[in-house]
Design a binder for these strands. Structure first.
Lengths: 349, 349
DNA sequence: GTTTAGCACTTGACCCTAAAGAGTGCTAAA
DNA sequence: TTTAGCACTCTTTAGGGTCAAGTGCTAAAC
């Protein structure tokens, strides 16, 4: 357990270091503390903190900087819960205030706002509605051998896709297939629908027409669109750290990461469990060493019965945690409000 | 006018420099030439080329590298028209050979292929069909106050968008509006449709219902989706040049460019005029100084009566022009073939 | 009249050293 | 327990020397 003074010193080290990016020495630190001690005293205390693994030296005669463990301790115990500034709040509310046609637009735009506010990379995940069910499936003929396939879920989502019919198709057979699909699949959870599409549905279709391939692709396509987790990224380029430009190997790996959204989306998987705001530092984010010098701040937002979503910010370990956490927290609340509004307005009967 | 020997020397300088990235000196150059001369002779010739503004020194005692004007001359007069390798051709054909559901998928995928082949940034633009007309507009009710708006063009493109109706809507009025829209707008070019949507249509809608806003947004939305130039980018990150990491200011500007597709899409505007493959070097690309060390290779591809599209590759000025131009040229032909196939198969009656 | 050998000169890259500055750990006194 | 003082460590910066690559020029060779 640390003394009160040691806490203050660790706090000051983190504050200084996140501000300047330079290791902080005992003399400067002494001046920055809220009580008056000499640099020698600070040195003694720093020796204790170093023994506890909370701070590091870059080399034997450099100043100190927080270790991962030090950041952890800071975030867990020393964070001063500074509320978000009025200005930031206004920006958030204004950005979310504009009118949107679709949930996806709000979520996607949110990633950009959050990224702009923090100047880091931001992620947003659509509210996950457990147990979404297929509530209807239609083919609307458009003439000239074209149809549009429309899928509606009981959560109110609509997905559609245009399709060109095989030349030699019997229209009656087509109607029969649609009726069969609706008979068989409406009311089932989307996961089950996907399963059945690979399972018994092909055979049933073949009952009416020669080959099921084209239709299966079509169904599969719209169902997976509807079932897909909607994942958005804002400010991905912020992941590339200017200051860190020395190591080309690390940059290379970062590039790979930047181009593969799926890898990034996995980072949020563990975030689904918790509630509220959660901070993961360095190796706590993933096994991948590229992210060792990053911190991930995740938060869930809760839209009542409409489900829970996730927002997240990925920035350097050396970040102003107080501000960033404050922003993420404010954002999750505003986003939840906004979405509740949206759902109420559009999806309720 | 340059002598034959000077041509050969310039050619060799470009070849060497694009290969190694290092200024080339007279001694090495003399060894690389197809005829036997001493380094002193080469030095004399290089002095001539430098006076003509075709080559440069980095400092008073460095080797020479091509100037922008030198590249221009090289591309215009010295390029040896090496055909694309069999291997590359196979890659192109295979990549384009897979099955696609939509034109957009082909075009979008093309940008990725082209970027992979060249390891530069690639752009693709969908074939522009002049004078596309609206051939039908429908609202299909989905129950629970939802409808899906569907727009079909005479080129066979389909766009759709889900929409939630205002609570207090009169269904008859709705039908009337749709009928009116179809009466008024079907058969018109999309540009005219857009114009009318801002012009007399609002008033006409208000004839049937109180406020036209929601509907106008909806119409506007699907029409602009259909009218929008489809622009795809592959390998945008390749724009960031590892070797050039020294100048942080330039990097910063590059970042901005990377995030703004519209600015990039403007680069292709001037490419629409020409036919075949076209090379723009450095400042010829745009006024923006960030692109001074890049070259843009554009090419049109012609899908007969279905319109013309554009592909382009943006890479460093120091690039192997012969290979890149060859690739772009091969690609435009293969893409045209593939698309012709697609259109014939799907859109013809 | 070209071409070439030779040479003085320029420049960047690399390495070494010295000095300055920031910081530490330790000791002994306050 | 705190602090002043000091020896020591390490990084950064500047300067100087050397080396290799390259140039321009001159005078001789072809």
């Amino acid at each position: 357990m640390l003394t009160q003074r040691q806490n203050k010193i660790l706090q000051a080290i983190v504050r200084q270091y996140t501000l300047t990016g330079q290791p902080v020495g005992s003399r400067h630190l002494a001046e920055d503390l809220p009580f008056k001690v000499s640099s020698a005293t600070v040195r003694n205390e720093m020796a204790v903190l170093e023994k506890a693994g909370l701070i590091l030296k870059e080399h034997s005669s450099s100043g100190r900087l927080p270790s991962k463990k030090g950041y952890r301790y800071y975030v867990d115990h020393l964070l001063d819960p500074k509320a978000v500034t009025d200005n930031d709040l206004v920006v958030i509310q204004n950005s979310l205030g504009t009118s949107f046609q679709k949930i996806d637009e709000i979520i996607s735009h949110s990633a950009d706002i959050l990224s702009n506010l923090t100047s880091y990379t931001a992620f947003t995940l659509k509210p996950e509605q457990v147990d979404v069910r297929l509530s209807g499936f239609r083919l609307v003929p458009l003439g000239n051998h074209k149809v549009i396939a429309i899928l509606v879920t009981d959560s109110g989502d609509v997905e559609s896709q245009a399709f060109t019919l095989p030349r030699n198709l019997d229209l009656d057979a087509l109607q029969a297939v649609i009726r069969m699909i609706n008979d068989q699949l409406v009311g089932l959870p989307l996961a089950d629908v996907m399963r059945r599409l690979n399972d018994d549905i092909p055979l049933r279709i073949m009952h009416y027409m020669h080959s099921a391939d084209g239709f299966l692709d079509l169904f599969d396509n719209v169902v997976s669109k509807a079932a897909r987790e909607q994942f958005f990224i804002g400010g991905r380029l912020n992941l590339l750290d200017f200051s860190n430009t020395r190591d080309p190997q690390a940059l290379q790996t970062m590039y790979r990461l930047l181009d593969h959204d799926d890898e990034l989306s996995h980072l949020l998987d563990t975030g689904k469990a918790g509630d509220g705001v959660n901070v993961r530092i360095g190796s706590e984010i993933s096994k991948d060493k590229v992210l060792d010098n990053y911190s991930l701040i995740t938060a869930t937002y809760d839209v009542d019965q409409y489900g829970k979503g996730i927002i997240a910010v990925l920035g350097p370990t050396r970040m102003p945690y107080s501000r960033t956490i404050g922003l993420v927290n404010a954002f999750r609340q505003e986003l939840a409000k906004r979405l509740l509004d949206f759902y109420r307005h559009y999806y309720d009967s």
